[in-house]
Design a protein around this nucleic acid. Sequence first.
DNA 1: GCCGTTTTCGGCCCGACTGTTTTCAGTCG
Length: 579
Amino acid sequence: MRNKEIAQIFNNIADLLEINDENPFRIRAYRRGAFSLETLSCNLDTLVKEGRLTEITGIGQDLSDKITEYYISGEIKYYKDIIQKVPQDLIVMMKIPGIGPKTVKMLYQKLNISSIAKLEEMAKAGKLQSLPGLKEKTEQNIIKGIEFFKKGSEKIPIGEALPLAEEIMAELKKIEGVNNISCAGSLRRMKETVGDIDILVASGVPDKVMKAFGRLTVVKKIIAQGPTKASVVTKNNIQVDLRVVNSDFFGAALQYFTGSKNHNVHLRALSQRKGLKVNEYGVFQEKTGKKISGGIEQDVYKVLGMDWIPPEIREDSGEIDAAVNGKLPNLIEVKDIKGDLHIHSNWSDGVHALDEIIDIAHKRGYKYIAITDHSKSLGIAGGLDESKVLEQIKKIKKIERKYKNFHILCGIEADIQTDGTLDLDKKVLEKLDIVLGAIHVGLKQDKEKITARIVCAIETGLVDIIAHPTGRLMGSRSGYEINWDRLFEVAKKYKTALEINSHYLRLDLTDINVRRAKEEGVLISINTDTHFQDQFNMIKYGVSVAKRGWLGKNDVINAWPYHKLVKFLKSRKDRLAVL
DNA sequence: GCCGTTTTCGGCCCGACTGTTTTCAGTCG
């Protein structure tokens, strides 16, 4: 977690330098460094020890020294020095929409405002208008900005944003003269949460689209509206940005608005070196101004001399180099998922009866599934004891006979108890085709205890998959901390897969840990943890996390054909017998 | 502060909208 702490400090330094009106490129260097640390896919400790920090993109000698200093002394002197000159609280003020470094500096220097509370008080008293270039309108906007900030600048989960975006796009599509439409931004990149919804439309009649957009029934308020760009807030307080462009540069605009910002900056720097200029209107030759691409996104990447990059990995974390060298991974898709290995029936806390949920899964076109109800210690969920498990196995085998070319694995989501043992008898667990291990109680144990618990469970050799490895629930609990190096090491050794739980509030593992897991040689399973039939649809969110973690279909055990999966599960058990 | 198939120095992505201006700075993405 140290890399997160240091990234935070670098970001703070960048904010403070911005307030001080320092060299913008120096500021960017700190932000780039912070970003690299946040998304680091290998162990920072090792790099520090081996003096290899400068191998990280965006970390040069200076930032490397500062990281090392933090490791040795627990602080960075340079940072300590600047926060003495500029109050750290000013950083928070910059989080208010509409307020940037210049305004913060002016507010502090002219009116000695250094907190949001003071700013609100002064704005409401109309005292900001004494400042140059600041009149009533801006003052009102600051008050609104503070309200917005207080309400929570919290991010919207992808599972709420995507359906809303799809609903809005369906409405806009009906307008005559709309030739093309797509979401963009972090939503198109399928980040686990998004700050707003970006929608891009290709049309020759932008004014018509703009008007229709403002009149949508979901719209509560229009924040800004120009001829080609508008922002609204929906009734459930989600900001939606719309941009209307001409069809002949829809591809370039889509590329541009999909981001990420860092991806675009890198892409443009690269194109500059080729004598090309990229903007949302197309790709142009620098010298002649001649347009050489723009209508189709694939072509934008092509004329820049690289493969098209899937939106999910456009984070400037190695994808541009890979695309230039033809080394992009062949990312997994929803259609590659051959079966769901985490499903509940009404034998525990699922809604549907066994035959019913099995039939629903079969109709989705899966080749196999696993029924994994809760185990006995989870009384609240009606967990199964040993005799119930044996009874369920018989029942499932009987149902399975009804199907051709469709297999049902008998499984369990066994509780990993606070001492690390599983809550069902070993002999019964061995009878099952697949065992998921999961933590549902004792979530507040410290990092070492939790890690030891999971390691202990894996070392029984009985656990095929660790379900929702960190237990987080977005918006309600952050999940327990884990020593990832240790978990990856043991998971690799015992060939235990880690789950990407596809529920949009879980998405556990996260994209960054997925990528690390792959690099450490750990297998992944993408499941929905379905308790109700609609939840099968959440598989797309889990697959998106996998894509963001650079996984291909070989990395995911439930993207394997049935015979390969069964062979794998059996080989795990055979290996156990030898151990 | 970082970085190099133009460079170890001199560059570093680019445009729309707002509010205040009367030509533009600040903010945002």
